[in-house]
Design a protein around this nucleic acid. Structure first.
Lengths: 163, 163
DNA sequence: TCCAGATGGTTGCAAATGAAACTATAGCCT
DNA sequence: AGGCTATAGTTTCATTTGCAACCATCTGGA
């Protein structure tokens, strides 16, 4: 049984309805999308979303270091370290120490990694296509612009609160 | 040092650039927003985002049961149970067993809870306003429509993969 | 050359999260 | 009434996550 809405003591104009609260809506949307995709990768290939991100970057930028992965995926460096370890372990990624600077690893997909990646790409594309299926071309452009603006505002917000 | 983009063996037209991949962009945006907000609530009031969501729903729907909270916040029932326990513990929420059905709890904000809530609402509004600050009114409407469409598509996607 | 500080990356630990098992109560069907 | 099934909510346990401490290597300056 769902309780009916009620106004708070002072009239309710200062209450917030989660359903219309932008951060909540974004969070809900992202969670739904991520869960659907995560299930897909996990069931078919035993990969997590972080794993997939690492593969995607290495497919495009072979020879990246872990630090490159951090900046390109915005993942935590610990998460990158662990994903890479898993993928090396499973033979999808090759790691070689850079000869010039022995602190960094040069990472790249193995043949196996490329093969897995090639099989995932269509699934990822299909997911994206399904999300966008009901949008007109101009709505897609609008979405693109909005996401850019929102991300910029969010970065601003994050930076402001920081210190 | 950032490695330059390279094409994969088969020409690269089947590679995915994370920066333009919608699920990744959504995830990134949501994480930025959530982290900024979480820091705000945590620093000022020691509340997590789940806690805040419970407060928000109880402010608007006093007398909700835990189950009502689950459907209104889309949180996991375990998360709801834990948030409620914390909030009761801290004196922000009152719990009473329903007399008609002794399985359910009737939850409501205490005076303290209302007071905390009243102080958080302006912060939440400010965050939302900051996000939307650079959007024209018609862009905000477009955003609203897009979020509805995307959420519907995401629900569809989720339901399809499910079984 | 050698030391101090910076950078790349991993490990350890503690908190957050989620699935599944469990307890308690209710409602239905005979 | 008795028992079966469903629902509300909590607890337990395994996994994930993130910070901070850590080790290794490099770089620049005395």
């Amino acid at each position: 049984m769902i309780v009916k809405a009620q106004h708070s003591a002072d009239g309710g104009q200062d209450a917030i309805d989660l359903e219309h609260f932008l951060p909540y809506r974004l969070s809900r949307l992202t969670n739904t999308v991520s869960n659907a995709i995560a299930a897909l990768y996990r069931d078919r290939f035993g990969l997590s979303i972080p794993d997939w991100r690492v593969l995607a970057v290495l497919a495009r930028f072979p020879g990246s270091s872990a630090q490159d992965l951090v900046s390109r995926t915005r993942m935590d460096k610990v998460a990158v370290s662990r994903s890479v370890a898993r993928l090396v372990e499973r033979g999808m990624v090759n790691r070689a120490t850079d000869e010039k600077d022995r602190r960094l690893s040069r990472l790249a997909l193995s043949a196996e990694g490329r093969s897995v990646y090639a099989r995932i790409v269509p699934m990822a594309r299909d997911c994206e296509a399904a999300l966008l299926a009901n949008l007109e071309p101009q709505q897609r452009e609008a979405l693109d612009r909005l996401l850019i603006l929102l991300q910029a505002a969010a970065d601003e917000l994050d930076g402001t609160n920081e210190k």
